[in-house]
Computed example of a mutant assay.
Amino acid sequence: MEENHWETFRGIDFGVAGEFKVKVEDEEARNRTDSTTFGLHQCVYTVGPVESQKMVKKGSLGNQISKEQFVFLASLNKHPNAFFVENYYMDGDGIGCLVVESLNGRFQSWLNYQVDTKNKQPSAPTLFTADGRMLPTLRTIILSLCSFVEHVLEKRWYPRHLTMDDLYLKMMNNQPTLKVLMSDVIQGTTPTRIASVWNHVKEIITHCCTLDNATLSGGSSSFYDFIGRQSKRVPLETYPDAWSYADKSAYLLLIMQEEMVMMKRYVQASGIVWPTEDGLIQPMLQLILDHDKTSTYDTDVPWDYIRLCRNVNKKFDVPKSVKAVIKDHIGFLKKMEEWTPMIWANLYETIGPLSLRR
Results as ranks from 00 to 15, higher is better:
V325I: 12
T294Y: 12
Q257F: 05
E3G: 08
L73H: 01
M336W: 02
T177I: 13
D300H: 11
Q42S: 14
V47S: 08
T210F: 09
R193T: 12
V261N: 10
Q42N: 14
L287F: 07
D241Y: 01
I12P: 12
I65E: 00
A250V: 03
T137F: 04
Y113H: 12
H329W: 04
A246L: 09
F148P: 00
N112W: 05
T276F: 04
G271W: 10
R233E: 15
S52T: 05
C309G: 03
A269S: 12
L76V: 00
S147P: 01
E19L: 15
L280S: 10
Y305F: 15
G94K: 10
F316M: 10
S123N: 06
R133K: 11
V180E: 04
G279N: 14
T163R: 04
S66W: 09
D166R: 03
F148M: 10
I281K: 09
C97D: 08
E7K: 07
K335D: 10
M164H: 02
K170D: 03
D116N: 13
A246N: 07
K54D: 13
S123V: 01
L347S: 04
V85H: 04
A214G: 08
R133N: 09
S231I: 01
M171V: 15
N213Q: 13
Y89H: 15
Y348Q: 11
A195R: 15
P240S: 12
Q257W: 08
I343W: 07
K327Q: 15
L356Y: 01
Q121V: 12
F84L: 02
T296C: 13
S183L: 12
K248N: 03
G48T: 03
L143N: 12
V47D: 03
E154Y: 11
V261R: 09
L143V: 11
S109C: 00
I351W: 07
D278P: 03
A195F: 11
E237Y: 04
K155T: 05
L127Y: 00
Q53D: 13
Y251I: 00
R30M: 06
H161A: 08
R307W: 12
K320N: 14
Q268D: 14
R233C: 06
K202D: 09
Y297Q: 07
H5I: 10
M1V: 15
N346F: 08
T126D: 06
E3C: 11
V115K: 02
V197C: 13
D13K: 11
P341Y: 01
E349A: 10
S75K: 08
F148E: 04
A324I: 05
P176S: 11
Q121R: 06
G59M: 07
L167R: 00
K179M: 11
V261G: 09
T33G: 00
F316R: 12
K54I: 00
T137L: 09
M260N: 10
Y88E: 02
P80F: 06
E150G: 02
V261K: 06
G48H: 15
F84V: 00
V201G: 13
E2L: 13
V318F: 15
N346I: 02
D93C: 01
H329V: 13
V100K: 03
